[in-house]
Computed example of a mutant assay.
Amino acid sequence: MADARSVILHEYPTSPFAEKVRLALKLKNLAYSRVEIPVIMPRPDLMPLTGGYRRTPVMQIGADIYCDTAIILRELETRFATVSLRTPGQEGLSQMVAGWTDGRWFQSSVAVIFGAIGDSVPDAFKKDREELSGRPFDTEAMKQVAPMMRDQWRARLMLLEERLQAGRGAGAGNYLIGAKPGFVDVHAYMNVWFMMNTLPDFANTCLEAAPLTRAWYDRLTEAEGQEPETISSRAALDIAKPAAPRLVMASTVNEPQGFAPGETVAVAPDDYGQVWVEGELVHADAQRIVLQRTSPEAETIHVHFPRAGFLVRRA
């Protein structure tokens, strides 16, 4: 039964970014609960927790809310380090890789996938994604660029094959960095999973020329972890309301904008889904910013964001 100590993942099954976190939870063999949120807005029980942040996934532990996979994975590693996904000697590398997988490679995945299935996508989904991205959901444009994006997608996939080939030559090629899975694998896995679960014929054709990547993908897919308990969005909100956020020392460290604890600031992604979440600044450093928010539905919560990829301004 989920409580204020439980890891609660707010997600939906087809989200490739949620799959990153699901894979990390499996590899770390962590128990967790899940809330299946709608693929499109509204999400009335989640918004009081996030302050309006609307990207997927969101992680909750009691009254602490973690927005974006970067801060979710960092927090899971900090709290549950017994099975570590950090690769010694490669610190920082995984987040650099994430910038590539979540950016250029994901963009080509979207173009290939929706260039193929865009005509069957419901209008409500298109409208929602237009609001999220701030751009038209232009299926005709995606169709036109899809052949070129298929080339781009395959080229990026083959970089994994080159890495695995080089690792095998060094005697440790089961995963991208060494003999054990780590965060680099978690990030790189996302786009392959997304394509395999949406356009499997195309993905399998590409993988025919990448046998090491196929074996790597299969190993990660077959990893065994704990089955999550599914709870309602209302139950998650009820868990947050009486809980107290984890104690965080109020501080700022070398802040370029001169922020101080107690100021009201606003945070938003720097690319899409740019909803500004306002709150009282609790803590800020080079990798994390924590806001305190209050609402009738959730009372006092702390909302955590990564710094890289997020904008911060005085409200």
Rank of each mutant, 00 (worst) to 15 (best):
P256N: 10
A98E: 11
M96T: 06
T198Y: 02
Y53N: 04
L76R: 02
P48L: 11
R168T: 06
F114M: 05
L76F: 03
P245F: 07
V83G: 06
N254V: 11
A116Y: 02
D102N: 08
V312A: 10
K143F: 11
H10C: 15
D238C: 05
R43H: 12
V145G: 09
V21A: 07
P306I: 00
M59Q: 00
V58F: 03
S295Q: 09
S33I: 02
R34F: 08
S233T: 09
T294E: 14
G51E: 08
R104L: 14
L30R: 08
L159M: 10
K126E: 05
T205S: 09
I61R: 01
E19P: 12
I8G: 12
F305Q: 00
H187P: 00
W193E: 00
E297Y: 05
D238L: 09
K241C: 10
F137V: 04
V267K: 07
E297R: 08
W153A: 12
A146T: 12
L247A: 15
Y53H: 07
A223V: 07
S33D: 09
V39D: 10
F125C: 01
R314M: 04
E77L: 00
V275M: 09
Q292A: 15
I37D: 09
L30D: 06
I72C: 01
V35Q: 06
L93H: 00
Q152F: 13
F305E: 01
I231C: 04
R5K: 15
R104I: 14
Q226S: 05
A266E: 13
A240L: 09
R214Q: 09
R288N: 06
K180H: 00
A141V: 10
P13A: 15
P261N: 13
